[in-house]
């Protein structure tokens, strides 16, 4: 009945899915300009590097979370995974153990394992993602406490500290380099590979993907596995960055990762979102936090601001969706 009418509106609707990420890019640039005007220190190179350092851990989690969100789920357990893998790395890199292979590989694999378990339960056993990952969130956090005996672990070896803390050209911390490499690699996977394309297809319409010969379960499972893997990497790096690990580390990180994706234009329904969106989203969160710290705004106000921004962005998203129908 409305076909002519619909076609008339095509022009206006075109490309709205990319719109949010672009709008957010302007928001990010706008924030940067405003904060630079408010504090001359903000835009100094040293502080910009700081911002990237502070983005890295959440940013890496957001790249993984983006995969889970793309296939139509999300992962509440990554924060706990950061805690667990951080503890595993710390246990293997303290007390005079100088080797890097063991702590790095074991902590990252632990994250991957959590992700695979989540993925199998979600994709093959059809348990809702929220339930599964809430369960693993608790289990994994429990494991972190057990392994650490409840104590924070300090005294990570110097070589391990260098993993994240080392400097490229004496200026850029490796941590930042890892983040950029991981984000770009994920961008390539999502944008350019068949595998990435299939994540979008499965998230957009799993049944259509199945009829089109795509192994829907495998794609879903692997997306959760990547999310876990990123949790493992983030935990491994967090231990290096703080030269310590606590079983509590990473608590609530999953929410920041989800927030980064949502701010960056990922739809919680799955199947929509641009790779650069998750980077912009993560940067917005850390620019806000860094800028407000520098301006001396108390963290309690920062919490309110963060929540308000997320709601406003989702509101814009919902409103633009409503206009479409």
């Amino acid at each position: 009945m409305m076909s002519m009418n619909e076609m008339g509106q095509n022009q206006a609707r075109k490309g709205r899915s990319n719109l949010q990420a672009l709008v957010m890019l302007f928001v990010l640039i706008g924030m940067f300009i405003v904060l630079s005007l408010l504090s001359p220190m903000f835009s100094r190179v040293g502080n910009v590097i700081n911002i990237f350092k502070q983005t890295a851990i959440n940013g890496i989690l957001a790249t993984g979370m983006a995969c889970a969100i793309l296939v139509g789920g999300f992962d509440m357990s990554v924060g706990s995974t950061v805690g667990l893998s951080g503890i595993i790395a710390a246990l293997m890199a303290t007390g005079g153990q100088e080797g890097l292979f063991l702590p790095v590989v074991c902590s990252v694999l632990a994250g991957l394992l959590v992700g695979v378990i989540n993925g199998v339960a979600v994709a093959y056993m059809k348990v809702p993602a929220f339930v599964v990952t809430l369960g693993t969130q608790s289990i994994v956090r429990g494991l972190a406490y057990i392994l650490s005996g409840g104590r924070p672990i300090f005294g990570v070896s110097e070589s391990y500290e260098k993993i994240a803390g080392g400097l490229l050209f004496g200026k850029i911390p490796y941590l930042v380099i890892y983040y950029i490499v991981i984000a770009l690699l994920m961008g390539f996977i999502l944008q350019c590979t068949v595998y990435g394309r299939r994540m979008y297809a499965v998230g957009g319409n799993a049944e259509a993907a199945r009829v089109s010969g795509i192994n829907v379960e495998f794609i879903q499972m692997s997306a959760f596995a990547i999310c876990g893997l990123m949790g493992g990497i983030a935990g491994m790096l967090s231990t290096s960055r703080t030269v310590s690990a606590a079983p509590l580390t990473g608590e609530g990180y999953e929410l920041d990762a989800i927030a980064s994706c949502v701010i960056g234009g990922f739809s919680m329904d799955g199947g929509a979102g641009k790779w650069y969106g998750m980077i912009i989203g993560a940067l917005i969160l850390s620019v806000m936090s860094n800028g407000l710290d520098i301006l001396g705004v108390a963290s309690y106000y920062q919490r309110i601001l963060k929540g308000a921004i997320i709601i406003i962005i989702v509101l814009i998203d919902v409103r633009s969706k409503r206009k479409r129908t």
């Binding site: 700081n50 967090s238 580390t249």
Partner: peptide, 15 residues
């Protein structure tokens, strides 16, 4: 927490 203190002091040094 260590992480939060690290982030805060980094930002304060930045000022």
């Amino acid at each position: 927490t260590t992480e939060e203190a690290l982030k805060l002091v980094e930002n304060w040094i930045s000022t």
